[in-house]
Design a binder for these strands. Structure first.
Lengths: 223, 223
DNA sequence: CGGCAATTTGAACATTTTCAATACGGGTGG
DNA sequence: CCACCCGTATTGAAAATGTTCAAATTGCCG
């Protein structure tokens, strides 16, 4: 399907590739990324696999999808990556891939191991690197938001409680904001919380949510 | 509202701050970021304003929200940023802020101008910087997805068509993937497209979507 | 103690999803 | 070159889910 023709300008040459240029290709530098062809329909990696390779898209289109919890069917795409994007870059901050990547248009991808990517990025503790890592962590922490896209209100709320309670966070956020974050109106949020409470998964007062029965909660989160 | 107490560990000292350490504070370095106090309820910046300052959260909580199109009311929060996060970091890749940032828990924020931040990050065209910039661009390109959170199916689809057609992109994505991206089932996507076509906003064939009347389309996107 | 704002509850309403059936288009083999 | 087949996209009607609007409740603060 197309929306007006319009071309996507594949990158064919390391000298015109941002990664290549940053590596100093042509000025004696060497780029650690090596190109591979991937046909439309193939998967580059799956959610949950060890994140061993970082990729860069030189040509084609890749769709990222994430399924709440475990390994994915092919549900819930959440982003499209085209020429000039890194994919699997979460390898820098996560031991496993956080989503699955599927080629939807024949692609040329340049890949390199996590170690080489890390070397390539230069010393840790430099401003650019800590910033990069923080930004990556922040993007991928938005997992709940991605999960928010699908599932019933009760499931999303259950997932959110699980997620937030896991690291003992104390959001102190007004309910209507949380509701918003989860993509629902405050009334719906309230009802969902009430249901979680009715089923015995949480203890609920107006000011505090406490996990009472994590297993039940997990069940409710699953559906 | 809380989910179990649990502390948030504010950063009180530049020597324990990632940004401070990366700047070499204590080893003769100097961190360009300077601290400011912000009370709960205040806004740090608004969507659409010139993005002149990059912030780092040392204490407190900030909620990011984005409204499709123009300047925001306080609708549709889409992310929470806590201690250790950068906010307004889109300043590096965008002339204006892409969302509004509102403090929800008294905060200490360290800020510095875009220029200083850029200096601080080191020379452009280094691997870490081009990677950072690419990742930022990718995160913020997910705007359509954020917009996806609210509005009716027809509105979201209209917005998507507008967005994709704007830069002449040719996604060639299967419909069920696009539908997914927009947070709806393929059937709903199909119906929405049919409606857009019925109202004369687009030309629709099974394989191609062409914008026929951008104004009508914009109206439909607005609601 | 009274008033205010946030939250919860209820019932009608609107939208989206579901499930099932049909149409379309591209590719294959005759 | 055409008929047939298969997977994708579309349409229809019923059911589920979330939203809206209005009213009642709760906790906080003066």
């Amino acid at each position: 399907m197309m929306i007006d023709p319009g071309s996507d300008g594949p990158i064919t040459n390391c000298a015109t590739c941002p990664a290549g240029r940053a590596s100093g290709v042509g000025r004696g530098g060497r780029c650690p990324f090596v190109a591979r062809l991937r046909p439309a329909g193939s998967y580059v990696y799956f959610q949950g696999e060890p994140a061993d390779v970082v990729w860069f898209v030189k040509k084609g289109t890749v769709v990222l999808s994430r399924s709440p919890g475990d390994v994915a069917g092919e549900d819930s795409a959440h982003a499209v990556r085209r020429v000039g994007s890194f994919i699997g870059i979460e390898a820098l901050v996560s031991p496993t891939y956080l989503d699955s990547a599927r080629v939807t248009e024949d692609a040329t991808l340049c890949g390199t191991s996590r170690e080489n990517a890390s070397l390539w990025l230069g010393p840790p503790e430099t401003p650019a690197r800590i910033t990069l890592e923080q930004v990556l962590r922040a993007s991928y922490a938005e997992a709940p938001r991605a999960a928010g896209a699908d599932g019933s209100a009760v499931q999303r709320v259950a997932r959110w409680v699980l997620e937030e309670a896991r690291d003992g966070r104390a959001p102190s956020l007004p309910r209507h904001i949380v509701a918003n974050l989860l993509g629902m109106v405050p009334e719906t949020f309230s009802r969902a919380l009430a249901q979680l409470s009715r089923r015995g998964a949480i203890d609920l007062t107006r000011k505090l949510i406490r996990v009472k029965d994590p297993d039940t909660l997990r069940d409710l989160a699953r559906g």
